[in-house]
Simulated assay, not measured.
Amino acid sequence: MATFLTESDYRHLIKGVNLQHLIDEDPLVLDMAETAAIAKVKNYIHQKFDVDAIFSATGTDRDPDIMEHCINIVLYRLHKKAPIMPEDILYDYNNTLAYLEKVAEGKIGLMLPRALEEDMETPRTRFKLTANTKRSH
């Protein structure tokens, strides 16, 4: 059961009655969509960030950007079964995927707990230092 998001987190993007209509008033449908959304976000960020710490946070300790992107994915998944996909839902979903790809590539830095090397307390990094060959002139 996904517990990272709460039903009140959706209020700024969708009315409660519309959300209930999308899930056919079955909380399990919402739970399954949230679980899938969280898994998708984890797949993008797990190399650099401590996903267990990020997704075990509650209340105001949760990262607002991660919450928003999870909600965008949830709403997209819920609207997939609707006869028409609203343009704003598709737009937000595509922006979320582009954002997560940039995070995974290291082009966007986030203020999140870093993943640690196993058996170490140092952040996991993937830097390679190189130098140009010496010139003789």
Score class of each variant (00 low, 15 high):
E105T: 08
E34H: 07
N72W: 08
D52H: 12
E105S: 15
D26W: 04
K107W: 07
A53P: 02
P27E: 13
H79R: 05
D61E: 15
E101V: 03
G106D: 02
T96E: 02
N94Q: 14
E87K: 14
M111Q: 13
F55L: 00
N72C: 12
S56H: 10
N43R: 13
P86Y: 06
H79N: 15
A98T: 13
T35E: 10
K42R: 14
I73N: 08
S56M: 11
E105Q: 14
F55M: 01
K80D: 07
N94H: 09
L112I: 02
L112N: 01
D63C: 11
L90Y: 09
D88H: 08
D24T: 11
A37I: 02
F55T: 02
H69T: 15
E87T: 12
Q47R: 13
D52L: 12
I66Q: 06
D31I: 08
D63L: 05
N43V: 06
P27I: 09
H21W: 11
N95M: 11
H21G: 10
Y91E: 15
P83N: 14
K40A: 11
A82E: 12
T60R: 14
E87C: 03
L30F: 00
I23A: 05
I38F: 00
Y76A: 06
M67P: 02
M111E: 13
H69Y: 14
G59W: 04
T96H: 00
I84S: 10
T35I: 09
F55E: 04
I45C: 06
Q47P: 03
A57P: 05
